[in-house]
Amino acid sequence: MNIDPIHQFEVQRYADLLRVSGVSFSFTNASAFMIGIVGAIFLFLTFATRGRTLVPGRMQSVAEMSYEFIAKMVRDSAGNEGMVFFPLVFSLFMFVFVANVIGLVPYTFTITAHIIVTAALALLVIGTVVIYGFWRHGTHFLHLFVPSGVPSFLLPFVVLIEVVSFLSRPISLSLRLFANMLAGHIALKVFAFFVVGLSSAGIAGMFGATLPFFMIVALTALELLVAVLQAYVFAVLTSIYLNDAVHPGH
């Protein structure tokens, strides 16, 4: 039976490509959606800006607004030096945003509802912060964990807290997105199964099924909000974390 709210998250293999020491790199529905998302982003942005008009049309406005929105976000959080990360934050935002929104379409696969995907993206962010921070500032990057103006007897505790909070960043960043997507989709499926289950119980059940049906409509609206919001939150936090790589001193 597909009456299972978890079924939608299952990874289905389309083609077995390569297997290295038991780890499969098969082409799956997740892979297909990742490639589809990348293709959709690139084709849309290219198509929208094909005219390169001085006064933008609707589609070009969307492309320009997303550009300026992310550019402003990065500049506000990380300053002008942080603009080296603009392509990264833009790619992350568009990727997560499109993945979240596509996932709301029935029968699609939500790649951001997989912890491995969100964790990989979060680790990419934190890895960029650490590598760029050390490359750019050397050991000065470690001042990130040593706030100035703290009494010396408190310093060990403060440093400990700073380190823990830094280490928890990739966890919170990945779990927030993953949990939001997962919970929303499960809730939608559960209410959908209420509709199916109730309506199979005759006429009275069909009338009763209208309630969860409208609940699905409301939940879908909420999930759309969550999908957009989580992509935004991911991008904002990314630019805030990247600010540490650019300006490690507090």
Partner: peptide, 28 residues
């Protein structure tokens, strides 16, 4: 599923990053 997901995520996101940083963002 992790191996496959990571590999394809790396490929697709890498392509996205390249396309955005080399083509689309300079264009906009």
């Amino acid at each position: 599923t992790f191996g496959s997901q990571l590999a394809w995520l790396a490929v697709s996101f890498g392509v996205l990053y390249l396309l955005m940083s080399r083509v689309t963002l300079p264009r906009i």
